Simulated assay, not measured.
Amino acid sequence: MSKVHEKSPKDCAKKRFNINKFHKKFFFSFSTFLLAILSLVFLVWLILHPKKPQFSLKDVNIYQLNLSDSNLINSTVRLTLSSNNPNKKVGIYYDVLQVYASYKSQIITQETSLPPFYQGNEETNLLSAALDGYQIPVAPSFGYEVGRDQRIGKFVLTLKVIGRLRWKVGTWVSGRYRFNVNCIAILPFNSIPSGPLSSKQGTVCSTIV
């Protein structure tokens, strides 16, 4: 007859204790490592503290703003923006840039995408955009608002940029952050306009990251 070896409840309890101890040790080591990495990233971020990019509107021209009887608008807008990175040690990747124009909170052009680019430390770039709108629906009051601005002699146009960016510190690159840029342009609007509505007065835009 062969001898049967049976583990006592004490041995099973000891084995379960060792497994639990290993899992706890592994979890503690992993948590410590992850915390160290996050602390390092936060420390770098805290020391450098990237400043949000600065945008300004250099010039804007409205070549077309035609409203049909069915409250549909065709528009043509051309503009130039200046983008500045104020950081001394942080670069910026602009992955997504979309520009559009609005009037009295009503969108009058389609969104136009600009090519992505990298902006180095304390670098400034000029961005040109051609915005067009075709058969865009607007509120019935649109024509009245334009007529009122024409009598006043000022046409207030809002230019917006929406996109996503990444910060670059040395070889480290952050995740994507959304940003929004809002520019207000005031264009002279004569009672009998000749040529496009134009403004070459520099306007500082507000930026939210």
Rank of each mutant, 00 (worst) to 15 (best):
residue 4 V to Y: 11
residue 7 K to W: 15
residue 8 S to G: 09
residue 14 K to E: 11
residue 17 F to A: 11
residue 17 F to S: 12
residue 18 N to D: 09
residue 25 K to P: 03
residue 25 K to G: 10
residue 30 F to H: 06
residue 31 S to F: 15
residue 32 T to G: 10
residue 34 L to A: 09
residue 36 A to R: 04
residue 40 L to P: 05
residue 41 V to W: 07
residue 43 L to E: 06
residue 44 V to A: 12
residue 46 L to W: 14
residue 46 L to D: 09
residue 46 L to Y: 11
residue 48 L to I: 12
residue 55 F to S: 03
residue 59 D to H: 14
residue 60 V to G: 00
residue 62 I to N: 00
residue 64 Q to K: 13
residue 69 D to V: 05
residue 71 N to A: 13
residue 72 L to E: 08
residue 75 S to I: 09
residue 77 V to M: 00
residue 80 T to H: 07
residue 80 T to V: 13
residue 83 S to D: 04
residue 89 K to H: 15
residue 93 Y to W: 14
residue 97 L to Y: 00
residue 97 L to N: 00
residue 98 Q to V: 14
residue 100 Y to A: 05
residue 100 Y to G: 04
residue 105 S to Q: 14
residue 106 Q to C: 03
residue 108 I to G: 01
residue 111 E to M: 09
residue 112 T to S: 15
residue 115 P to W: 02
residue 115 P to F: 05
residue 116 P to K: 11
residue 117 F to E: 08
residue 118 Y to E: 11
residue 118 Y to N: 12
residue 120 G to S: 12
residue 120 G to C: 06
residue 128 S to Y: 04
residue 130 A to E: 12
residue 130 A to G: 08
residue 139 A to D: 12
residue 143 G to T: 03
residue 145 E to M: 08
residue 146 V to Y: 01
residue 148 R to H: 13
residue 148 R to T: 11
residue 149 D to E: 15
residue 152 I to Y: 13
residue 155 F to E: 03
residue 158 T to E: 15
residue 163 G to P: 00
residue 174 S to D: 05
residue 181 V to N: 00
residue 183 C to D: 01
residue 187 L to F: 05
residue 188 P to A: 10
residue 192 I to R: 13
residue 193 P to V: 06
residue 200 K to M: 05
residue 201 Q to T: 08
residue 204 V to R: 06
residue 207 T to P: 02
residue 209 V to S: 04
residue 209 V to E: 05
